[in-house]
Design a protein around this nucleic acid. Structure first.
Length: 523
DNA sequence: GGTGCCGGGGT
DNA sequence: ACCCCGGCACC
């Protein structure tokens, strides 16, 4: 398009000889103001009839056929320049040079330089017949892509432009936004092109067609990345004056909210959560493998993904929209939110909780592990390995939980067996023993280890830590079996109370102090 | 009655 | 989370 314009311009600005209006035969110089063509095919060499509107020296406008003008030229160069220049319109020729060549014949070489710019020439010399010119120009603009036409079109089509931008912004498609630079240049052509508004010469069509294609090229790069910055710059001038706030996300400083959204997620990210805060809460969950992080803001999750998963240092500024693929929006009731959060929190799901949930028939978490044992016939059949498997799995997890928290909770499981009155194995009381000593011991053993390390009870009890581990080891299998259970088979063994007595109540384990199942001397 | 714990409640 | 207590079941 660019080349074409140059060519046309050069043609239009060309100084030509024309038959004297007076008919005296003396050639008169003039500047081509416009070219009308009957035949639409500009580039076609022969078959076209062109009518040239020439601005004469006296300021009048005349229309000449191609032949007439040609006659004014030096015959060798006459038709040549015109035709050649036109021909070259399709190629990337250097018409100016040729034009100058033809111009050399003109009596006023000094003006030749000006003649290279048709616009300037016409304006300079054209004073009297402005109105006429304007009329002519209208014709010209309709048929040819003339530079000056740009202005008027720009104005006229402004609404179209804005409308288009509104649409694009609504679609939130970054694609449309990205090519703004060209838009400004091709403003007249592209939009007009689309519109039914004006008749179009084939040339303009072809060129404009190219323009619309840019939407595709813009895809080539990251859709969102290029768009925000460019669009912000190039669009502002148009959009701001016309419609103000219409714009696509990256409106920039004018709209802090949108700006904050960082382009890619403008429509649904921030605003929604804000609006729904009342009854519903919208969370954003990271879909990245093994992540599952949940954040309350899209910006947050985007940042998270960008920095953590995509490994991008940049702050929230540069989002290429890729993050969008890695998180999802979760709508929750405020109530359920808390639950969801707790369950979703990275720590819980991965390591600890998984085992407990599946068996989950029983209410309280801590009790879960025990529940299995009582239900299973394992009590009677101690040597059985089969029953143990579930236990082994669940037990450890529970234990881990226990360790992290209060050890005394560990006993909680024990309490349950109470329901199962009979378990002769009462062992349950102490814990999982009933099933398989071997497998069980393993799971059971591990806890003691952690115990010693962490020393459940503060500094005081260190000495007991050893005791405890010993006792545990001992108790692990046989003692339990004998132990009674019922309500939770009251721990027969030593308890803090017995060991320390009321006097040293402060030496008790916290559980004992709180009248909870002793965590120190588990039976 | 003493004891071990659970379920609850308060801060 | 920490702490306390009423109350129950067991010994």
């Amino acid at each position: 398009m660019h080349t074409r314009r140059l060519v046309k311009r050069s043609v239009l600005g060309s100084r030509v000889y024309a038959p004297s209006p007076t008919g005296d035969g003396a050639p008169v110089t003039g500047v081509v103001q416009a070219v009308k063509q009957e035949n639409r095919d500009l580039s076609a060499a022969g078959a076209r009839r062109s009518v040239y509107t020439v601005l004469m020296q006296d300021g009048s406008l005349k229309e000449f056929s191609e032949e007439e003008i040609a006659s004014g030229f030096n015959h060798t160069a006459a038709k040549g320049p015109l035709k050649s220049s036109l021909k070259q319109s399709s190629s990337n020729g250097a018409p100016d040079g040729q034009k100058v060549e033809g111009g050399c014949l003109s009596p006023e070489p000094a003006e030749e330089q000006r003649s290279t710019d048709g616009k300037r020439v016409s304006r300079d010399s054209d004073t009297r017949s402005v109105s006429l010119l304007e009329q002519k120009r209208k014709v010209v603009s309709s048929s040819i892509d003339v530079p000056h036409a740009r202005r008027s079109e720009e104005e006229v089509d402004m609404d179209k432009v804005t409308a288009a931008m509104v649409l694009t912004s609504l679609s939130t498609s970054p694609l449309v936004r990205s090519p703004p630079v060209r838009v400004s240049e091709g403003l007249s052509g592209s939009w007009k092109d689309n519109g039914s508004a004006g008749p179009f010469t084939p040339s303009s069509n072809s060129s404009s067609g190219g323009y619309w294609s840019w939407s595709a090229p813009s895809d080539q790069s990251n859709p969102s990345t290029p768009s925000p910055p460019l669009s912000a710059d190039s669009f502002k001038p148009f959009r701001v004056p016309s419609l103000g706030g219409v714009g696509p996300g990256p409106a920039g400083p004018e709209d802090p909210i949108l700006d904050e959204q960082d382009g890619s997620s403008l429509l649904f990210d921030e605003p929604i959560p804000r609006k729904r805060k009342n009854s519903m809460k919208v969370m954003f969950k990271c879909l990245w493998k093994n992540c599952g992080k949940v954040l309350s803001t899209a910006a947050g999750i985007q940042r998270h993904i960008r920095t953590i998963h995509l490994g991008r240092n940049c702050d929230s500024d540069l989002s290429d929209g890729e993050e969008d693929f890695y998180y999802t929006e979760i709508k929750l009731n405020t109530d359920s939110v808390a639950d969801g959060l707790s369950s979703l929190s990275p720590a819980s799901p991965s390591v600890l909780s998984p085992p407990p949930p599946p068996p989950s028939p029983l209410p309280s978490v801590s009790q879960l592990p025990d529940s299995h044992k009582p239900t299973q016939p394992s009590d009677t059949k101690e040597p059985h390995a089969g029953g143990t498997t579930p236990l082994s799995r669940s037990a450890p997890s529970a234990l881990y939980l226990i360790h992290t928290d209060h050890a005394y909770q560990a006993t909680a499981p024990v309490s349950i067996p109470s329901s199962s009155t009979n378990n002769s194995a009462g062992s349950a009381s102490t814990s999982f023993t009933p099933t398989n000593s071997s497998s069980f011991s393993i799971s059971w053993q591990s806890p003691p280890v952690t115990f010693t390390g962490t020393t459940v009870s503060p500094s005081k009890s260190q000495g007991f830590g050893d005791q405890r581990s010993q006792t545990i080891a001992v108790l692990s299998s046989p003692p339990r079996a004998t132990a009674a259970l019922s309500r939770k088979v009251r721990g027969e063994g030593k308890k803090c109370r017995k060991v320390y007595g009321m006097e040293n109540r402060d030496m008790w384990c916290t559980a004992c102090r709180w009248k909870k199942a002793c965590q120190r001397f588990t039976d």
